[in-house]
Design a protein around this nucleic acid. Sequence first.
DNA 1: CTTCGTATTTTGATTGCTCAAAATCAGAAT
DNA 2: ATTCTGATTTTGAGCAATCAAAATACGAAG
Lengths: 241, 241
Amino acid sequence: MATPTVENYVKQIYLAAPDHVGGLLPLGELAEAVGVVPGTATTMVKSLADAGLAHYQARRGVQLTDAGRRLALHVLRRHRLIESFLVGALGFDWSEVHDEAEELEHVVSDKLLERIDAFLNRPVVDPHGDPIPTPAGTIAQTPPSNLANCPLGESMHVARVVDQSGDFLRFLDRNGLIVGTDLKVINRESAADAVQIRVGRNKRITLGAASAAKVLVAPNTTSTPIAQPRHARRPHKRPKA
Amino acid sequence: MATPTVENYVKQIYLAAPDHVGGLLPLGELAEAVGVVPGTATTMVKSLADAGLAHYQARRGVQLTDAGRRLALHVLRRHRLIESFLVGALGFDWSEVHDEAEELEHVVSDKLLERIDAFLNRPVVDPHGDPIPTPAGTIAQTPPSNLANCPLGESMHVARVVDQSGDFLRFLDRNGLIVGTDLKVINRESAADAVQIRVGRNKRITLGAASAAKVLVAPNTTSTPIAQPRHARRPHKRPKA
DNA sequence: CTTCGTATTTTGATTGCTCAAAATCAGAAT
DNA sequence: ATTCTGATTTTGAGCAATCAAAATACGAAG
């Protein structure tokens, strides 16, 4: 059985991998992601390699094996189902479930996970719009466009938010931006690093480009209505101001 | 923060303590309960003592301090609320929740625990009838009588089952004996080590004395109806035979 | 009072994970 | 080609938890 530590390393390698060509993740970045000093990452990655979970090329980087990817997806499935459950069954807010799931993901049994999955009626994405891997280890692909690069003026909706920080999520919440929200990108000021969007009929919001890139969107095809995530949704707190 | 290991030691000391006069638990028994060799228990208990969680007297035994007891009750509260939640919210059977709770009890946050408690409507006992400690660290006392020592012929009900083994619990289930079930002890054959009871109108069951002692009972006062545990109850599987 | 048997403690090692700091390497810059 | 700089690896060490096996102490039996 993989220890929680091993599960975390594998998960972080998986999550960080797509940002690097050839899929080779430098160990410094892994160390950063896991929260250890670089030397520790080196040691651990060697042992991951011994365990057949990763390919390690000294001074170049690390990459998951098939077994490693399977494990990572299994951990991710647990994490995202737990987040969905906390929001859908226990009334948690999407901004507060990440840390909780971070702990629980290493101890829930397959049996419990199955019950949670059934309870939620087999959701395909978690409250942040992150796709939930199947038990078989397949996972839906990320929509390629986000608020920083999608076409202007077209009707889109929020498909996913790729940042787990509570502050950011609460900011989105305050502005009525949750997974499924309809919006249009009105304008981009690349000089000012700013993205203007319209939500609903008349609400305007301006985001910095870095934040805009974290909000993934998909076009609203007029033929089919917005693809709502299948898990239970509660009304969100409305902003005071 | 206490490690899961420390929480387990403290919990086991708490659970085993009442069986010993003076409350001093021999380290061999602790080792047995925790599942380590005796030497390991000695080492750990010393460090519990250093941490102010236990009093240790070499070659005599160990005993919790107030801080230790507080921690033990906190862990027990988590364990029992989790068991209640798995049964009451996710449809688990009372015979399969113990191991799951054993893992989860070390990682659920206070916030999650509070939500679970609220969801279940503040239960006072878990599915086995074990009392759930309050957040403040108080706990209801065990009813003193059980099937092996209660008066004959009087109307009683099952208040608590002090054995977590799946086999035993499934046996009780098969015979319709769950927390709250009404019954009478008809007869005891001390020579044969047997206890005969009647459940409901005409069902008769015979138990060995050791098993009978694990089923705690309380009298059915005619003035007030049976005190049902407050948590949600599902219909239990009825026996095939 | 001495001896014996058993419970307990001590000792020495191991495993998994971590850090600090020194050593090394690889690519960029001169 | 040489030097520099920054990333990476190595080395040495520590902590928490564990085991196996040797040493010790306590109470019971003689």
